[in-house]
Design a binder for these strands. Structure first.
Lengths: 244, 244
DNA sequence: CGGAATGTTGATATGCCTCAACTAAAGTGG
DNA sequence: CCACTTTAGTTGAGGCATATCAACATTCCG
């Protein structure tokens, strides 16, 4: 019987790539080591040299930079099916850290086993490559979001992305999804002071676009939230249209 | 005789990856079509579906997003040896545009020929994959730079990166390098108003850290510029130490 | 030489950060 | 289980950095 982690991985890669039966079989033969993370626990630190790659099975992880002034800059958030450190397959040292947001379950796969698959099943390699390219596309969008958009638009955009990606991966429940972030963390992701985060959240709530409480995002009016966030999901490069 | 473009490509990939003689031979057998771009000319637009990948032979190209409000957000700048649209090998549609900054010479290589190399020379595929991963690392650093750092640090960091990368590719001349950007473009890269760009440049010049005039960056005091920009080149993932 | 784009300077406005105080919730130990 | 401590969230006031506006200088380019 195949490890359920293999299903999660195969399912995720099929969101954007084509895999045949043998490709999936190769994924099923990988070794998956379980690891549980406490909320806020660091999984990888800047400078580490991992020899395994992680697959998120449940919960949310965050990638971040430490700033010289002691601050923290969140770079992206990853959910079930994501490979937050796939880059470590080809970049020796981590240039950023990865931590758990809320409780997290990971599956760890040895680099050597993964790269060995690439020799016989190039399509698997291309799918994971594509996964890292989508990652990069999300980083680009974040540059634009954090540099070029006003605070309210910026925050709406982040929540659009979080909900859309959760929804596309089947993790939304009705008009809600889990995002166990504090306002402090939102500020460190969006480059805003906490006070501003708080007031911007209130503004979005008063406008009946969305609510965010206790780590639960509730979308009240998707269409207007998308408009308020200048959100266009093309950059996520999903194979199928995702209806919200 | 091999196309000089092949040398440029092989040389670039060797900045971070190991290639053997056969790998280089494979690169030499690629078809390289020349294309010249005028200053400011768009090479690819958002939504395009390229079937060739570009190699920068000379000059500088910029990748950018168009904003809904008509503005422009520059995402990164690429110089000789860079592959600004390598992602198009595996992502159908461009989620951003690429334009020339100053006059540019490109070599275009058919996607099909490149992916055919991957079958026989996986090391070439991994090297180009690594190239796209370094790209992503630079995007991450840009998120941090534009979201988490004050204007003066932010600008110093950008110039550190531009100089360091030019220097690593052998494109610096003494303590200067070419960066044919206008102050308007700097503002659109850093998320600053033009007036602020102008005054921040003056501040860096008065402090005798650097000068930027007529598209020429002159480093007056590298050590202090690095300190002023919180610059640490680890994120560029170069194989060798680069002494400035 | 004239017109457009870019760069420079000064003055003003404002969005957001900082500071501060307080409330609410969550986690801890007796 | 409840006092206690800590962390997260909320509200108000004030100041500063940076955007915006406006005028002018300079360079570029036809």
């Amino acid at each position: 019987m195949a490890d359920p982690a293999a299903d999660i991985l195969a399912h995720k890669l099929k969101e954007h790539s084509r895999l045949n039966g043998e490709d999936v079989t190769a994924l099923e033969r990988l070794t998956y080591h379980r690891r549980l993370l406490q909320p806020n626990e660091d999984f990888i630190r800047q400078g580490d040299k991992p020899d395994v790659a992680a697959l998120v099975l449940s919960g949310m992880v965050a990638r971040y930079h430490l700033l010289n002034n002691g601050g923290r800059q969140y770079l992206s958030f990853n959910i079930k099916g994501d490979l937050p450190d796939a880059q470590s397959l080809f970049l020796d040292r981590m240039d950023h850290a990865v931590c758990a947001v809320g409780a997290v379950e990971l599956a760890l796969m040895p680099h050597k086993e993964i790269t060995r698959i690439f020799e016989r099943r190039p399509a698997v390699g291309f799918a994971i490559w594509r996964e890292t390219l989508i990652d990069a596309a999300i980083f680009r969008e974040t540059i634009t979001n954090n540099s070029g958009r006003a605070t309210r638009i910026r925050m709406a955009h982040l929540f659009c992305e979080l909900f859309y990606r959760a929804h596309a991966s089947g993790l939304s429940e009705g008009n809600t999804c889990s995002a166990p972030l504090s306002q402090i963390q939102l500020g460190e992701a969006l480059g805003m002071a906490i006070v501003t985060v708080n007031r911007t959240l209130q503004s979005l709530r008063r406008a009946r676009l969305m609510e965010f409480r206790h780590g639960i995002l509730t979308v009240k009016d998707w269409k207007r939230l998308v408009a308020a966030g200048d959100f266009n999901p093309d950059y996520l490069h999903l194979k199928r249209e995702v209806k919200v």
